[in-house]
Simulated assay, not measured.
Amino acid sequence: MITGTTSPLDEAAKAATGAALNRVLADLVDLSLVAKQAHWNLVGRGFRSLHLQLDEVVDAVRLFADDVAERAVTIGVVPDGRAATVARDSALPEHPAGLVKDVDTVPYFVEALLAAIGRLRDAVAETADTDVISQDLLIGITAALEKHLWMFQAER
């Protein structure tokens, strides 16, 4: 039998916090993938600056996903960032296939970031009574994604 970490949380708090962390993880993994997809397939006059901006999002979000997954393991929850789980559970809108103009990429990322931030804010509220340590992590990630949102909104 494989056993995980002994949780510092009671079972109800662990389950609620773990569910919130796994929902956020799905969104973060998806956001890192669509940002890299957009980075590769971006065209238009704003290519250079947006290309670099998307890499900044990818770098940040990959670290956030790792932090969320490691927090889940720390409290005794198995993180699930598999492709099938992410495809099923992510709240992000589907990114278009093929080449995408810079003027279409910006509104997509505004919408995608708003979706991820909305779920993060829900998770912050859900973890207020179950695990303030996880809540603190989620608050920091929310603040960082809101800064990226502001930067994409300024591009419009």
Rank of each mutant, 00 (worst) to 15 (best):
Lys36Gln: 07
Phe47Leu: 03
Leu33Cys: 08
Glu70Cys: 09
Thr6Asn: 09
Asp10His: 08
Ala15Lys: 12
Phe152Trp: 04
Pro8Arg: 05
Gly76Tyr: 11
Leu21Lys: 11
Trp40Thr: 07
Asp27Asn: 15
Ala112Leu: 10
Ala116Lys: 09
Asp30Asn: 13
Ile133Val: 15
Val106Asp: 14
Asp67Met: 05
Lys36Arg: 12
Thr74Gln: 13
Asp122Asn: 05
Arg82Met: 08
Ala13Gln: 10
Ala38Val: 01
Lys36Asp: 00
Trp40Arg: 12
Arg121Phe: 04
Gly81Ala: 13
Asp27Pro: 14
Ala13Phe: 07
Thr142Gly: 13
His95Ser: 02
Ala97Ser: 05
Tyr108Ala: 12
Ala69Cys: 05
Leu31Asp: 00
Thr3Trp: 05
Ile133Arg: 15
Ala35Met: 03
Arg119Ala: 13
Val61Trp: 08
Asn22Thr: 03
Asp122Pro: 00
Asp136Phe: 10
Val34His: 02
Arg88Met: 05
Ala72Met: 06
Thr3Phe: 10
Ala12Phe: 10
Ala15Pro: 10
Phe47Val: 02
Ser90Ile: 07
Tyr108Ile: 07
Val29Trp: 06
Ala72Gln: 05
Val24Asn: 01
Gln135Tyr: 04
Pro79Phe: 06
Glu111Arg: 12
Gly140Cys: 14
Leu113Met: 15
Gly44Glu: 08
Val43Cys: 01
Val110Trp: 09
Val57Cys: 04
Asp102His: 02
Phe109Gln: 10
Asp104Thr: 09
Trp40Tyr: 10
Ala144His: 04
Ile141Val: 15
Ala38Ile: 04
Leu21Ser: 09
Gln53Glu: 14
Asp131Met: 10
Leu25Met: 07
Thr5Val: 15
His39Met: 01
Val77Lys: 14
Arg119Lys: 14
Ala91Thr: 11
Ala97Asp: 07
Gly46Lys: 01
Arg23Met: 09
Gly4His: 13
Asp55Phe: 06
Thr74Ile: 05
Ala83Asn: 00
Ile117Lys: 08
Leu9Gln: 08
Glu70Gln: 10
